[in-house]
């Protein structure tokens, strides 16, 4: 796929996010919309061995959505990639649905780890990368963490281990939209010079000025690995990206659009 086609997929995934959260009357659109380009880039271009017909292929690249509340973005991406049909959107957050409120590896095809308890996904991804090295598996492990999530000490414990074990088969994608549930990062818990902190922990850092620009995201994710170092792709993103009334609004972290708002959002997201 070329960049324009990938952008079109991202636009459709954004529509999926709106459709799912509106139908369920719940979910996290803000942080889903901020990370959409990265997920589409991963599943449609970057990750090797992604195959909806063989989602347990042992040598496939892995992805762990550590910020598990952005599940609608992952579900939209997996659906567009062919892991399940759009009819599953009806079951998002519903009884017996495969699309649980947070990703569930036992229920949803294509989901490599169950996440939602923040901080854990990155640590699980470190374990996957370490396990891959141990077993000689050539796969690469990707994980996406949130900025608010980085309040969790486990993010830093995992980062220490990633550097210690020289996990150059691990890429951590940092979705820096600057907002969390109760307010901005600055209001809730200042992250300080978070790039410097990740660098000090031993990551090779690739910074992306606009993490919602598909070409920039692709370039970053395709940057050759730095031998002996885990990679951190630092995405400057916009919370609620693509929907005018959600952009940059803390209030849309965990609130679903009503019918009227969804209609407006879908109109804005038309191709």
């Amino acid at each position: 796929m070329n960049v324009q086609e990938l952008q079109a997929v991202a636009r459709q995934v954004r529509r999926d996010i709106i459709i799912m959260t509106n139908k369920a009357g719940a979910g996290h659109p803000g942080g889903s919309l901020s990370c959409t380009e990265a997920l589409v880039a991963l599943y449609f271009d970057v990750m090797q061995g992604v195959d909806p017909k063989d989602d347990k292929n042992p040598n496939r690249d892995r992805f762990v959505l550590s910020k598990g509340h952005a599940a609608p973005a992952l579900y939209g991406t997996l659906c567009e990639r062919g892991f399940f049909g759009r009819e599953e959107f009806d079951g998002f957050r519903q009884l017996h649905g495969i699309l649980q409120g947070h990703p569930d590896t036992k229920k949803c095809p294509g989901v490599d780890a169950s996440t939602g308890s923040l901080g854990q996904g990155i640590s699980i991804a470190v374990g996957m990368a370490l396990g891959a090295k141990h077993t000689g598996n050539p796969c690469h492990v990707y994980t996406m963490i949130g900025d608010g999530e980085s309040d969790e000490g486990l993010v830093w414990e995992a980062s220490m281990a990633a550097a210690h074990y020289k996990l150059d088969n691990l890429t951590v994608i940092f979705d820096y939209n600057g907002m969390q549930i109760d307010g901005t990062n600055e209001q809730v818990m200042s992250l300080g010079d978070v790039r410097a902190k990740f660098a000090a922990f031993g990551y090779d850092i690739v910074e992306v000025a606009d993490g919602n620009d598909m070409q920039q995201v692709l370039d970053a994710l395709h940057t050759p690995a730095c031998p002996g170092k885990p990679r951190l792709v630092f995405l400057h993103t916009l919370k609620g990206k693509g929907v005018s009334f959600m952009e940059g609004q803390v209030g849309w972290h965990g609130k679903a659009p009503n019918a009227e708002q969804a209609a407006q959002a879908l109109k804005e997201l038309e191709g």
């Binding site: 991804a125 374990g127 990368a129 370490l130 396990g131 077993t135 486990l154 995992a158």
Partner: peptide, 14 residues
């Protein structure tokens, strides 16, 4: 905590 989740990830690699 990190040990347990690292183990979780390693278990997925067989």
């Amino acid at each position: 905590a990190d040990m347990v989740d690292i183990a979780a990830g390693m278990s997925t690699m067989g």
